[in-house]
Amino acid sequence: MNILITGTAGFIGFHVANAFIQAGNTVTGIDNLNDYYSVALKHGRLQAAGIDTASLLYNTAIQSSTHPGYTFYVLALEDYQALQQLFSEKQFDIVIHLAAQAGVRYSVTHPHAYIHSNMLGFLNILECCKQFNIKHLVYASSSSVYGMNTEETFSTGDPVDHPISLYAATKRSNELMAHVYSNMYRLPVTGLRFFTVYGPWGRPDMALSLFTKAILEDKPIDVYNNGNMLRDFTYIDDIVEGIVRVAQHPPTGDADLFAKAPDPSFSSAPFKIYNIGNNQPVKLMDFIEIIEQTVGKKAIKNFMPLQPGDVYKTYADVTPIIEELGYKPDTPVEYGVREFVQWFREFYKM
């Protein structure tokens, strides 16, 4: 397949690109390389994929030195003309859209960044997919869309009308926009609600990176909501496998089924939404203890109140993806943390 993957200098995009490249596909990656977090880490991911970061120029192809099927461009999603030109030249079969302005807490202080990247950028992706007859658009949503949901587990059939952060609101808006294009233009689209992704090459603003770094440096860690939180930590390999499987199964829509049992996660249009989570929430304090055991040092804990935009618990119901695609994320958190800490110490030389 000829695949466009957005956000390939990012955490998930880097791993997904590698998986599709290794499977023999032709992959074009794009990323705007913004400075929301360390650009050096983004360059490190690109270099690991054979991209010469010293040669990076805007909207200029860089061929991987290690993967003949991989080409990378520095490109902003808001640049509609450049995006159209890329679609026209490459004639992609599938688009996997993972680029976004990330971070729940950052959206409190930098709201405009989320509208530009997550709204306008996604609109440009949808327009290009429509114009160039893309066979399947797979895009990243987020568990944050569940917002004030108080159910024991979060199901894609649940209403998601009460987000509590602008980041979550933009991700829910993406799902609604995707359905419009799927319904009007018969564009096959699948949204994936990721649950607390972690693993090697992870973002430095995520809890696992922050905790590991602080513990190694004998500095205190901020433990929000006094540690009374649950997270469905999902290892990066499980996310990648889910994306690969989903990409190969574009939705077709089912008018009869939808008419009998309306559900926000599917439609008479070729539209689908899945959760991808480990389905085994871990207490934040237990997660910290696993990091402590792996690192071999105790954390100095600074207990804090719940932060604006944070939710108490995330817990994925993954029944649909198990039943329809035969796949269930199941990497134990102990294994995932060990793999992350090993990478972290090597990359940061700690």
Rank of each mutant, 00 (worst) to 15 (best):
A140R: 01
Y198S: 07
P200E: 11
S173M: 14
G157K: 10
V145N: 02
L176R: 12
G202Y: 03
T190F: 07
M148Y: 05
Y198T: 04
L192M: 14
T153E: 12
S143W: 00
S142V: 03
F195E: 02
S144I: 01
S141E: 05
V189N: 03
F122H: 08
Y167H: 10
F195G: 04
S155Q: 11
A207E: 08
F194D: 02
Y198C: 08
A207I: 12
H116W: 00
P159H: 06
L210S: 06
L126P: 07
T170C: 09
V197Q: 04
I125T: 11
I134C: 08
N183C: 08
N124C: 08
Y185Q: 03
A169L: 14
P159W: 10
N133E: 14
I125N: 03
A178M: 09
Y181P: 05
T153Y: 13
A207L: 15
S155W: 05
L123Q: 13
P204L: 10
M148L: 15
N124Q: 06
C129S: 12
N133W: 02
V160P: 00
I134G: 03
Y185I: 00
R186A: 10
T196Y: 10
I164M: 09
N183I: 00
L166T: 07
A168V: 04
C129K: 09
P204V: 08
V145C: 04
I115R: 05
F122D: 03
V180L: 14
H116V: 10
S117D: 13
M177G: 01
G202E: 14
H116Q: 13
P204C: 11
R193K: 13
Y167A: 05
K171R: 09
G157S: 15
K135C: 00
A168N: 04
S182R: 06
T196R: 05
L120Y: 07
P163M: 04
H179R: 15
M119K: 00
I115A: 11
L137T: 06
F154V: 00
L123G: 00
S141Y: 02
P204N: 10
S117K: 06
R172T: 03
N118L: 08
R203K: 13
H136R: 11
A113Y: 14
N133V: 04
H136Q: 11
S144T: 11
T190C: 06
L187Y: 07
H179A: 06
Y114V: 05
A169I: 05
R172W: 05
H136P: 08
W201I: 00
S143A: 14
L187W: 07
F132Q: 06
S182Y: 06
P204Q: 11
L192N: 01
F132D: 03
P159N: 09
S209A: 15
K130H: 12
Y185N: 08
P159D: 11
Y114M: 09
R193Q: 09
L166C: 10
P200Q: 12
W201G: 01
A113C: 14
D161S: 13
G121D: 09
Y181Q: 07
V189C: 15
N174A: 15
L176C: 07
P200A: 13
S182G: 12
H136V: 07
N118D: 09
F195N: 02
Y114N: 07
I115H: 10
T153S: 13
V197L: 02
Q131P: 00
Q131T: 14
R186K: 13
T196D: 13
Q131L: 15
G199Y: 10
F154E: 05
I125K: 04
I134Y: 03
F122V: 03
Y139Q: 04
P159I: 11
Y146T: 06
